[in-house]
Amino acid sequence: MHIPDGYLGPTTCGFFYVVMLPIWAFASRIVKKTLDAKQVPLLAIGAAFSFMIMMFNVPIPGGTTGHAVGGVLVAILLGPWAACIAITVALVVQALLFGDGGITAVGANCFNMAFVLPFTGYYIYKAIGYNAPCDSTRRVIAAGIAGYCALNIAAGLTGFEFGIQPLLHKTANGQALYCPYGLNVALPVMLGEHLLVFGWVEAIVTALVVKYLLKQAPELFAEKGGYPCK
């Protein structure tokens, strides 16, 4: 889901940088207010953690492997605003040091994966798992559904961003300048692979990790950022 440089035109790249600037500013203000000084390293841990989740390959049917993005998981553990900063940092490290995701597309990638993904996932988890006790399977199911839905929403958004490129940038004779596929191709392709494969990987990883943590360390869910156990 990492959009590389060259796929999106300058208008889209610029638009998402402009959209993300106030979100980043607001996120750092909220996090400064809610996290005490002791928890600052936690943001760094969250960033490194979201970077690492993508390195865990999960066995999927067909003998192959896939990896989760982990945005929803980080949001459940740290809260959506702290997750926004943590995932942004992870995406910047990936773009700058490893060429994974473009530098000009950092704004768009952060909007999809550091804003839409954690926020939608977090609120879906909160709505379904509302008031559930710590040992309730409703929380685990909520985490899985949140992971699946949020990843597909983010993937649909990425597909939309690809798909509008031929509409925004085309020469007079009809030559595409950036991603050459319109909405009729980009959207179904992005959604299809995430609805069928990667969404399930995200759902399974999010649900199993939440299940494990609820059993082993339920106190983590009572921290300021996370969703407390009742």
Partner: peptide, 23 residues
């Protein structure tokens, strides 16, 4: 899948508990 999830969770637990030492 359980092994992977257990590892992700234990990675989080280990690093979370290290937070105070880092601070």
């Amino acid at each position: 899948r359980h092994i992977v999830a257990g590892n992700i969770a234990s990675l989080w637990l280990r690093s979370y508990r290290m937070n105070e030492a880092v601070y």
